[in-house]
């Protein structure tokens, strides 16, 4: 077990190394660089003549004139040794400052979405499989397909409307105005959780729909296994039987796809965040692409892949615990 963990961690480091190279290449891919974009922004329409030398000066100022490999080493070196993700040109400050609080809020959104997804998808999927072809099953299937088909932003707008008109609360952002700049306290956490409900439900809906169908399908297969009939033949009650045998195995595919869910949720996050006015990373990522603010984009991509790699690692360990058929080779 220990050497498996060490192996996996080494594997993760290697993965992250290649990911960082790919991310850097992606950052370099768009035509032009921040210097050109900056000069264009600042002087377009003013009639000022910009020469090649001016742009080169800007490049030198931001360190953009160095060869790519040197910039990569500087960048990755800063991250590994000092946790410094470089400079956010457009914000005239460090990437760490720009991302800082947003990364935690993004993580809060991601995890609350995951929790909502699994809390609904697993029990409901199991229920639907047990009551297969019943009214409840069909209703749930319709609801989950609705979740897959409805665009998230529409759902977000709908829930926004309901919360504002029916519950008369402010849903924009992640904090009520009185807590926005207040120091962290119990009341602020509660306020945050309240604000997380709507985005979590919106984002969880389609992920839930997908996982619900996965759980339902696996469960339906497992219910018909001979081992379940054998347990029934031992006189076990239906409820205990269902929970102990098929439900236990129906969780496995869910546990194995946590990384995919994170990726999915994060890709859907920006548009929902835009509608709900959430301060999170997805929207910032898009903006930094537009500005060619390469280190901001790089930091976000790197952090996201890091989260996914870590969650996949977590998935593997979870499966190892859940399914005794998965044996560690040579141990």
């Amino acid at each position: 077990m220990v050497s498996f963990l060490i192996q996996r961690i080494i594997g993760m480091v290697i993965t992250m190394f290649f990911v960082s190279i790919i991310v850097f290449i992606i950052m370099e891919l768009p035509p032009g660089d921040y210097a050109e974009r900056w000069a264009f922004r600042k002087f377009s329409g003013t009639g000022t003549q910009i020469t090649e030398a001016d742009i080169n000066n800007i490049r030198a100022e931001y360190g953009l004139d160095r060869p790519a490999w040197e910039r990569y080493l500087n960048w990755i070196g800063g991250i590994v040794t000092r946790g410094d993700f470089g400079e956010a040109f457009a914000f005239q400050t460090s990437v760490n400052n720009v991302i800082g609080q947003k990364i935690w809020l993004t993580l809060a959104i991601l995890f609350s979405t995951l929790i909502v997804t699994y809390l609904i998808a697993i029990p409901v999927g199991i229920y639907a499989a047990v009551r297969r072809r019943s009214v409840a099953d069909y209703t749930l299937t319709v609801f989950s397909y609705l979740g897959l088909a409805l665009p998230n932003f529409l759902l977000a707008l709908l829930l926004l409307y309901i919360t504002v008109t029916v519950f008369d609360s402010s849903v924009g952002g992640l904090f009520s105005p009185e807590y926005k700049d207040a120091p962290w306290s119990m009341a602020k956490v509660v306020d945050l959780l309240k604000h997380l409900i709507v985005p979590a439900v919106v984002l969880a809906w389609s992920a839930t729909a997908l996982q619900l169908q996965t759980v339902r399908a696996t469960m339906s297969d497992e219910i018909n296994k001979l081992s379940v009939t054998a347990a029934r033949a031992r006189g076990i009650s239906e409820r205990k039987l269902m929970l102990k045998y098929p439900a236990r195995l129906a969780i496995n595919p869910v546990a194995g796809s946590i990384g995919f869910d994170i990726n999915r949720i994060f890709s859907e996050l920006p548009i929902v965040a835009l509608v709900l006015g959430l301060p999170e990373l997805g929207e910032l990522l898009i903006r930094s692409y537009l500005d060619l603010d390469m280190f901001v984009a790089g930091a976000i991509l790197l952090l996201l892949t890091f989260i996914i790699v870590v969650m996949n690692f977590f998935s593997d360990i979870l499966l190892l615990i859940l399914d005794p058929r998965i044996k560690l080779e040579g141990r």
Partner: peptide, 24 residues
Amino acid sequence: IRDIRGGEAALIFQEPMSSFSPVY
């Protein structure tokens, strides 16, 4: 019937492989 199943009448199957659950 649950008292009878396993308690007074028991059943064994053709495929011994699949009559046990692999996770317990």
